[in-house]
């Protein structure tokens, strides 16, 4: 991403054009990601169930890579959303713990920035379905900021 993209991203953010943001990321569009803000102004990411995101048709369950990609995408958007920088963050590492299989239902995610240093940011990400107290997966990630 160049600063042109970040300029556009920040304009979409200021307009609260959630659909426009997802639409600008081909992979997020392919998964079918949606985003919104909850009552307290926190970003909420939603992945409506889609047959093409299934990884185990017998259970059936969402593909682990879909859950991971959805969370990584959520973290990246969340970080760009809360910063003013024109420098796009880069993922350094991404670590996922799978706690439950992803049922054929909507999957939700929210992120929190645990630390923002000069060069590195640390984020925690959580995904759940029916009950936010029973996460489907939790993840942590480091991003390079500069």
């Amino acid at each position: 991403m160049t600063s042109d993209y970040m300029t556009r991203f920040l304009a979409l953010r200021d307009a609260k054009d959630y659909h426009g943001i997802i639409d600008s990321i081909p992979y997020a569009r392919l998964l079918g990601v949606e985003m919104s803000e909850d009552g307290e102004g926190n970003l909420l990411f939603t992945l409506p169930f889609a047959e093409r995101n299934v990884g185990n048709p017998i259970l059936p369950a969402l593909h682990g890579g879909v859950i991971g990609g959805f969370l990584e995408n959520a973290a990246l958007i969340h970080l760009m959303w809360i910063r003013e920088s024109l420098e796009p963050p880069k993922v350094i590492d991404f670590s996922l713990d799978y706690l439950k299989s992803g049922r054929p239902q909507p999957l939700f995610a929210r992120c929190s920035l645990t630390k923002q240093g000069k060069r590195v940011a640390h984020m925690l990400i959580e995904a759940w379905q029916e009950d936010a107290r029973q996460p489907v997966a939790v993840a942590r990630a480091h991003f390079l900021l500069a």
Partner: peptide, 16 residues
């Protein structure tokens, strides 16, 4: 693609 300006694949593709 995850990075529309450069055409780099999304990390989610690598994860899968």
């Amino acid at each position: 693609v995850g990075n529309p300006a450069t055409g780099v694949l999304h990390g989610g593709v690598i994860t899968s």
